[in-house]
Write a protein that binds this DNA or RNA. Structure first.
Lengths: 334, 334
DNA sequence: CTGTTAGCGCCTTCAT
DNA sequence: ATGAAGGCGCTAACAG
């Protein structure tokens, strides 16, 4: 195929112009006479010219790469978001490079450093644990956008849903179906999302004048197994409950399995609501009522927002809202 | 933080040597006097020097990036593999850049081109659809390793398990539990894996002298919904079956849901076996017997193999085997 | 509008 | 063993 790499010089030659002119039509930085422009484009086509990314970066400063920091241990929810980010980048000139934080502040920091050292033109954090100050440090070097995580002080550069409101409406759904003893399986409280969902649950209970007894809360960590454990804990407490609101689908699925083992029927005996609308929830037996977060769309939005920042184009922060997906895991109490 | 970028020149200055020498200790290309070496290293530490990837690539030729081609629509199994690849790269000097083929030959081709244009030092294909010839075209430009897919002619550059054998042993497990009417939900037959699993199933049936009736096969596409549809089809045929072997967990889960809806108990009435050991399978009700593929490990191995090729180090092709994970979805017929 | 001249930061002969 | 010089491919002033 491509024997020798052809450069800007080559096409400059066959188009009888200077390198600069070629560069200009390439980047559209300065107007170029139409005829020359065409000649250049033709030459590029003919020689199958591919600009050298590295030379370009070296000379120009911009690397046309954007860094994505993922936290790949954990919920597939974040994977969807990452997919979205990449998809958003797909239609642009930017290439994503990914580094993994694995939900460990130390590694997250390293990941960001790696990316920054690689001189990415921008950074999108998919979730993450680093606090505002830590990120501020990097923010000076490169624009950053945070998606699927709410961080105080970053309202203008992050994309999230209102977890509190979503959790509240999920809980309300249970209440409307006449449930009174509603247990909550909490997510890892180091995540703001988990806290917000917990608060949302409490708010709903409070407004409905339902007691917020300690025995209704169980600590989980967003993983399925913690859902299983949560039910076991709940059962051991021997206090009645007719519904469960889990802070994510994985724990909800785990809970559902534990109930199955304990011979408790869903939804006849106990109703369940999850969060995130992962595919697992749709094919659970029975399918799980859950809260849908438009993960991929949020990712796409984040990428657009970042590119907006990079190119100094006006960016408005899109709003995303969660939506309750009604499925068979919730029954009405009569 | 780092106000101005410090270059090889700067550290050359503070270490009182020439740029060349710095470059040499940096790359270990030529012996350097121990004292100077130390001086340089100290300077680098002191100034927090970070080599410029782009300059290095421009001048040197190698870009220290490896491309990963993913197919992100579909099974989370491939995600695990990709994770593995990235993890394997993590401990190296190489940075991964990802492009997505989305299980579309056309896009896959574009993805590879993008990566090759970016002058990646190597390429790992996580799954994929392009045929041998198409890949050969790229192979000339850069080393390629294929993982989680078997492609004729690429035995020495791919990492897979023996899908046929695995499927056979899964089917045998059913047979040993005295099942005779075993249905098979096939995966997308454009995937070699799907074909192999189908063949494995048939081989097991044949060897056990069980009839291979047409009404026992249902075409699926690896997605959960196709598992649901498959059961509906099967039920409509009104031919007896006591067990199902699905070509992946997602379809198995879908099948399980459809059975639930049809009021058919698992495993009392029908047993199920899936494939891939995705987390969904472990928390299904009941948990699903499945075939485990060491996805992440395969990914890691692929990255090592690729780097071996790139650096011309001796690489031996590691072997991975699948393992049947016994869970509650299979019952013995008496 | 367009050609010329400098580098960007680093690696690599080539002498020494 | 080490410094000097040239160049990787491209962009960015700077003159015309």
């Amino acid at each position: 195929m491509s024997k020798k790499k052809i450069t800007i010089q080559d096409i400059a030659g066959t188009a009888s112009v200077s390198k600069s002119t070629v560069s200009r039509v390439l980047n559209g930085t300065t107007p170029v006479a139409e005829d020359k422009r065409l000649a250049v484009m033709e030459a590029m086509k003919a020689l199958d010219y591919k600009p050298n990314v590295f030379a370009r970066s070296l000379a120009g400063g911009k690397t046309m790469t954007i860094g994505i920091v993922t936290e790949n241990i954990g919920s597939p929810f974040y994977d969807s978001v990452t997919q979205g980010v990449m998809k958003g980048l797909n239609s642009t000139e930017y290439t994503p490079i990914i580094a993994d934080g694995q939900w460990q502040p130390k590694l997250e920091r390293i990941a960001i450093s790696t990316l920054v050292d690689r001189q990415v033109d921008g950074l999108v954090m998919v979730g993450g644990l680093l606090d505002s100050e830590a990120l501020d440090e990097f923010r000076q070097e490169t624009p950053i956008v945070i998606v699927a995580r709410s961080l105080p002080g970053w309202e203008n550069e992050s994309i999230t849903i209102d977890n509190l409101a979503a959790a509240k409406s999920a809980t309300n759904h249970l209440i409307e179906n006449r449930h009174r003893e509603i247990a909550h399986i909490m997510g890892d409280q180091t995540h703001q999302d988990a806290k917000d969902r917990y608060q949302g649950y409490k708010a709903a209970m409070r407004e409905a004048n339902l007691p917020l007894s300690d025995h209704l809360f169980v600590q989980g960590n967003f993983e399925s197994q913690s859902g299983v454990n949560a039910i076991e804990t709940l059962l051991r407490r021997e206090k009645p409950f007719t519904a469960i609101f889990a802070a994510n689908d994985q724990m909800a699925i785990g809970a559902r399995l534990a109930l199955y083992r304990a011979n408790i029927r869903v939804p006849q005996d106990v109703s369940i609501i999850g969060f995130d609308n992962q595919s697992e929830s749709a094919y659970s037996t029975p399918p799980l009522t859950t809260v849908n977060q438009p993960a991929a769309d949020m990712g796409v939005a984040a990428s657009r927002m970042l590119i907006g920042k990079i190119t100094n184009k006006p960016v408005e922060i899109p709003t995303f809202s969660a939506e309750l997906i009604l499925r068979e895991s919730v029954a009405r109490i009569d």
